[in-house]
Amino acid sequence: MKGNPIWEVFIRSKNGLEHRHVGSLHAADATMAMENARDVYTRREEGISIWVVESKFITASNPSENGELFEPAKDKAYRHPTFYNLPNELKHI
């Protein structure tokens, strides 16, 4: 239906945690999207913060391009702590 786009819904369950994607819904505008998100996704006090974003504003990577997109990190083991050899008797490092 025109003028009833899809919105993606993100909920922060409690302070200290990030917003997580929980699903989507249709609404005519941001206020209705917010109220619908409250009704559909927080019936049991699942969250203390809601973000709604029209799906068209999300840019998603293409899984078929994953190889190329994520290639830079493949050969950089030196970003991991285990790359570095230190004596066993060393503490707190």
Binding site: M1, K2, G3, N4, A27, A28, D29, M32
Partner: peptide
């Protein structure tokens, strides 16, 4: 109801 929601959203915009 669906029509009213849409009309309301358009009016606000």
């Amino acid at each position: 109801v669906r029509a009213a929601a849409q009309a309301h959203a358009e009016k606000k915009t």
